[in-house]
Design a protein around this nucleic acid. Structure first.
Length: 180
DNA sequence: AGTTTGATCGTCT
DNA sequence: GACGATCAAACTC
């Protein structure tokens, strides 16, 4: 579960879909594939931090940095259901259905009210709160990652993990520009 | 210094 | 199912 507190209040979500990315040549789909850059440097640092990036000219997506010592990597938060601050999440998402409030990585960032500038923040300290449920979900499925182009998008990297059948899981989409 | 591309979403058909 | 929005980072001269 991840919570974020602002002057407007607190929104908390239960994460039901994530994707894993690694760095340094091990994972062609990762932003950290070619080593650290100003944007991705946080992926090479302390686990438990936020890696937020801006994409498609208008969207912010959130990752939790997490990897073995000396490695690099992060987990993209792709889908969630709102468990606290429902009214605030609704107002931020302007008219979307309750199911769609945090169903998708960019929607999730909007619902939580996390700005791009928060990248690098410690998710274990205020205004954030990140915790693992006492009873982890049992029916977790792994599939190919969503929207990833090139070699990282195939079945070679089945690093998308979702709670089976949960309404907060986003629909699978293949990469927008992969034609045949 | 110029070009390309995207870990997406909402809207329209 | 298809497409446009919109811009920063990364890549190519």
């Amino acid at each position: 579960m991840l919570a974020h507190e602002t002057a407007d209040g607190t929104v908390a979500v239960r994460l039901v879909e994530v994707e894993a990315y690694r760095g340094l040549g091990e994972d062609p789909g990762s932003h950290a594939h070619r080593g650290p850059t100003p944007r991705t440097r946080v992926m090479f640092g302390e686990p438990g931090r936020l890696y937020a990036y801006f994409t498609y000219g208008m969207h912010t997506c959130l990752n939790v940095v997490g990897h073995a010592p000396g490695a690099a990597g992060a987990v993209l938060l792709r889908g969630a259901t709102v468990v606290e601050g429902l009214e605030l999440a609704r107002s931020r998402r302007g008219g979307a259905s309750d199911r769609d409030l945090a169903r998708g990585p960019a929607r999730l960032a909007v619902a939580l009210g996390v700005p791009l500038s928060a990248s690098g923040a410690d998710l274990l300290a205020p205004p954030f709160r990140l915790l693992v449920p006492a009873a982890p979900p049992t029916a977790v499925v792994s599939t190919a990652r969503t929207g990833v182009s090139g070699a990282g998008g195939g079945a070679a990297y089945p690093w998308r993990f979702a709670v089976a059948g949960d309404p907060g899981v986003s629909p699978y989409r293949r990469h927008a520009r992969s034609h045949d």
